[in-house]
Amino acid sequence: MKSTVVDLDAPLPWFDKRLDRLLLKEPSGALYLDLGEPRFFVRAADGSVYAVEREDVVAKYLDRLVTLPGGAPIDDGVSSLMRLLPLTDVMRLKQALLDFFTDASSATSREKPDSSSSAPASSPPTSPMA
């Protein structure tokens, strides 16, 4: 699994440590199935598409995926830490999380269907006309 390091604008004391960065692990497939999409996309009347973030789902992902730089869990939980971080750092963590979903979505949309078959597997069988 991939992970990304998020540097903090405002390092802060955390028990016996001084945090200047956090590690955000890539969501697993199981976690995705448990929590779902962190955002959904809406088409506006003018045809443009925009994302609507599900803040409750984003918070659950961050709570499960943010660790100390070495991968150790955060004592007292991530939500306690988030209350101490400035807005820019929390937004940086959220964006790093959403980037995992954007990258996964881009990777799956680039995949080509198997070209060994002339018809997609979901197509109904055709019968010759009599």
Rank of each mutant, 00 (worst) to 15 (best):
M1C: 00
M1G: 02
S3P: 12
S3Y: 15
V5K: 11
D7Y: 13
D7P: 06
L8R: 11
A10D: 09
F15C: 03
K17H: 14
K17A: 14
R18G: 12
L19Y: 02
L19T: 03
R21M: 12
R21N: 13
L22W: 05
L24G: 05
L24A: 13
S28P: 08
S28W: 07
S28Y: 08
G29C: 03
G29I: 09
A30E: 09
A30Q: 04
L31F: 05
Y32D: 03
D34F: 06
L35Y: 05
L35N: 08
G36P: 00
E37Q: 14
P38M: 11
R39K: 01
F40E: 10
F40W: 08
F41N: 09
V42E: 14
V42D: 03
A44Y: 02
A45Y: 02
A45L: 11
D46H: 05
D46M: 00
S48C: 06
V57Q: 07
L62Y: 05
R64Q: 14
L68D: 09
L68T: 13
G71A: 13
P73M: 13
I74P: 02
I74T: 01
I74D: 01
I74R: 02
I74K: 03
D75H: 13
D75W: 14
D76M: 07
D76V: 04
V78A: 09
V78E: 08
V78H: 08
V78Y: 06
S79Q: 15
S79P: 14
S80H: 11
L81K: 05
M82N: 04
R83W: 01
R83T: 07
L84S: 13
L84Q: 15
L84F: 13
P86K: 11
L87Q: 12
L87G: 03
T88V: 09
T88F: 01
D89H: 03
K94M: 13
K94L: 04
A96S: 02
A96F: 02
L98P: 02
T108W: 06
T108I: 06
S109I: 07
S109Q: 10
E111Y: 02
E111C: 05
K112I: 11
P113I: 11
P113Y: 12
D114R: 14
D114W: 10
D114K: 12
S115I: 15
S116V: 10
S116A: 12
S117N: 05
P120Q: 13
S122P: 00
S123V: 13
S123K: 15
P124E: 10
P125Y: 06
T126E: 13
T126C: 08
M129S: 15
A130G: 00
A130L: 00
